[in-house]
Simulated assay, not measured.
Amino acid sequence: MRTHLYQIAEPRAALLLQQYAASTAAKRRRTWLFAAVIVLCAALAAWGGEVNLRKLVEGLPRFWSYIHDILPKLRLAHLSSDLAEWFWNWDGWLALLGETLLVAYVGTFLGAGIGFFLSFFASANLVKSVIARTIVRRSLEFCRTVPDIVFALLFVYALGLGPIPGVLAIAIHTAGALGKQFSEVVENVDMNPVEGVKATGANWFERVRFAVLPQVLSNFVSYTLLRFEINVRGASVMGFVGAGGIGKELLGSIRQFYYSDVSAILLMIIATVFAIDLLTERLRFRLIGMEERA
């Protein structure tokens, strides 16, 4: 096997090196300019938000002091009795935690269903009407832009205390978030199967059912599981405004300075979220693996 080396004339080589150096210098200048803009924006944000590093440093000891105060005094000689005293209302808290999980589950289920339906109408490769896509996309933006706790406050005012306001708030916010993610997945599908199904005379819904849905279903389920993790944490906070679940009990314990109750409830919430994260992570990885094998 022969190889040929071509020698470039020195003037030509010098010109190429000069152009390369100029291109590298221009790229370096753009990088430094971008970094300077980021630093400037961060400085302006810190100034506008009245960020005070001195207060932060002075307040950190109080933070750790509060953590120390809410932790119970566990003695090795009386460990069982100390734990029983710490989790004295574990069954009541567990019931409220179950209510929180149900709020997150039902809200995620409803929101995912709405987002699933609207995502196909927000995809540019399936819907050619700019007006229709714009209406759907702006509706999804509204749903995910307004914080879910604000929706919860509105529904608590309209419907009263209980889990229903939390379910509706999570459903609306989830529909906006998942609808956006689902539509992006749909816009990246292979259009060859869609054109093939269309050539058989299939209508729009049949093309979505038989050509688009098989390509996106695993990603849809993966995003929904990820959203469920987020909603469990969100549902815990919604109890602060009376939208049901463990949040109301946690807020009451904080306001009444029941320090040991605060730590016990927080520990139960953290353990539950950890367990759900691990379970849904395994399910999502399994779905991704199945999709790659397919």
Rank of each mutant, 00 (worst) to 15 (best):
Y258H: 13
N192Q: 11
T108I: 04
V39Y: 10
I38Y: 07
E281A: 15
H4V: 13
D277V: 00
L279R: 02
S222W: 03
I270G: 01
V197S: 03
F117C: 05
E187I: 00
G111V: 06
P61F: 09
E85R: 08
D190G: 02
L17S: 13
T31R: 09
Q18P: 01
A169Q: 07
G234F: 11
T145Y: 02
A35V: 12
F205L: 14
N52G: 02
R255N: 15
I254K: 00
E58I: 11
I8E: 12
W64L: 14
S81H: 06
C143L: 12
I288W: 07
L225H: 03
K73S: 14
R282L: 13
A21G: 12
L226Y: 14
I269R: 02
A152I: 04
L140T: 05
W90C: 03
E50G: 14
G242K: 08
W93V: 05
I276Y: 05
R75Q: 14
A25G: 02
T134R: 11
L74E: 05
P165V: 05
K198C: 06
P147H: 04
L79F: 13
D148H: 03
A22V: 11
A243V: 03
A202M: 10
F34V: 12
N52M: 03
G176N: 06
M268T: 00
P61D: 08
A43N: 04
S260L: 09
D277S: 00
I270L: 15
W93D: 14
Q181W: 07
E50P: 03
G48Q: 15
I170W: 07
K27C: 03
R233Y: 08
S23T: 10
L94Y: 09
S236C: 14
I135P: 03
R207N: 14
E291M: 07
R137V: 11
L161M: 12
A199N: 01
G242I: 08
Y157N: 13
F228M: 09
S236G: 06
F240T: 04
T200R: 07
T24D: 12
A95H: 11
G247I: 07
E206Y: 02
A235E: 06
K180R: 09
A158H: 02
L126D: 03
A199S: 15
N52C: 06
S123D: 03
H173T: 02
V232A: 00
A42G: 09
T200L: 14
V197K: 04
Y20W: 11
L283H: 05
L53M: 14
L217N: 07
A275E: 06
L15F: 12
F240R: 00
A35N: 06
L17N: 14
S65V: 01
G113I: 10
E195S: 10
H173M: 07
A26F: 03
I149S: 00
I246S: 04
W90I: 11
N231E: 08
W64H: 11
I246T: 03
N188Q: 13
G166M: 05
A46T: 08
R28L: 09
F205T: 12
F228E: 00
R30C: 01
H78D: 15
F109W: 13
N231G: 01
V212A: 02
R293M: 09
S129E: 07
F117A: 15
I70F: 07
E195V: 04
L53G: 14
K198L: 12
I114C: 08
F34L: 13
L153E: 01
V221T: 09
T224H: 04
A25T: 10
L101Q: 01
L161N: 06
Q181N: 11
L278I: 15
A95C: 00
A26D: 09
D69F: 05
M1N: 08
